[in-house]
């Protein structure tokens, strides 16, 4: 590999592998950020509307940093915007969970909580990355995600241990979305190369911390963990490798409309 990046640990790993991995991290933030932003103006209460919009902003801001670094490592003159707006669905690397539709508020919150608990474990590990740029972005993002997790956990407990109706909806959302969590913790060749270079943790290493957080919150929420259920996307055929559900295309149709209709448009 080119030696010009020796100051950064990404020099120790194949450049394309590193870009692939950065897109996974960045695309999770981008697609979930877009999904959450869909609530803007539609949330059940003004405070929730504002909270969701702010959280979407955090995620899209984090995506800008990750995809900006992907563009820098790639070294082909692309920008974060070009990576976000000019790829088709098969080139996206986000988890299937984050492209799931918003559904009712219960589904939105369960999706958020299951992701936040993973996101914070990942970012915490990344603050120790051998690459200072990765560690720097993670150190910034982890503080924002601590707020996301605090909020989603609080609301899962409040609605899970709430009325019969809210409990029922939260349990249904959990049963629906739990089969999309296995994909977070699968290790493939990209993950192993990044772990060997000391840039990122193996995803499977994050599972014990996630299990603990999820178990604690679900117990407090009086919700039943679905247990060992069949999981989507864990055999190398999931969002991490570009095999997406039908939902992603619709997200991109809206998100990328402007750049597709007016190529190269800038603010």
């Amino acid at each position: 590999m080119a030696g010009s990046v020796e100051a950064n640990a990404v020099g120790a790993v194949d450049r394309a592998v590193c870009v692939e991995w950065l897109q996974r991290v960045g695309d999770n933030a981008l697609i979930l950020g877009h999904r959450v932003s869909e609530w803007c103006g539609h949330a059940p209460a003004l405070e929730e509307d504002i909270a969701l919009a702010n959280q979407a902003l955090d995620l899209i801001g984090q995506c800008q940093l990750w995809l900006g670094l992907a563009a820098e490592v790639e070294g082909k003159g692309r920008t974060a915007d070009q990576i976000a707006y000019l790829r088709d669905a098969g080139a996206f690397r986000n988890l299937l969970l984050v492209e799931r539709p918003n559904g009712d508020f219960g589904q939105t919150l369960i999706r958020q909580f299951l992701f936040d608990a993973f996101h914070i474990a990942l970012l915490r590990a990344l603050t120790e990355s051998s690459d200072p740029r990765v560690a720097g972005i993670a150190a910034k993002a982890v503080k924002e995600v601590a707020y996301h997790l605090e909020r989603s956990a609080d609301l899962v407990v409040r609605l899970g241990d709430g009325t019969a109706e809210s409990h029922d909806r939260m349990q249904k959302a959990l049963d629906l979305l739990f089969p999309y969590t296995g994909e977070m913790f699968t290790d493939d060749a990209t993950d192993r190369a990044m772990a060997e270079a000391g840039i990122a943790p193996l995803p499977s290493r994050l599972k014990p911390e996630w299990d603990r957080t999820v178990a604690d919150v679900l117990e407090e929420a009086t919700l039943t963990q679905p247990g060992q259920v069949w999981q989507h996307g864990v055999k190398g055929q999931g969002g991490k490798t570009g095999v997406h559900s039908e939902y992603l295309g619709f997200i991109l149709a809206e998100m990328q409309f402007l750049q597709r209709a007016y190529p190269g448009a800038t603010w």
Binding site: I120, V142, L149, E150, A153, V217
Partner: peptide
């Protein structure tokens, strides 16, 4: 918050 929920939940 530091995202460690024990005691907060």
């Amino acid at each position: 918050p530091d995202g460690r929920l024990a005691g907060r939940i």
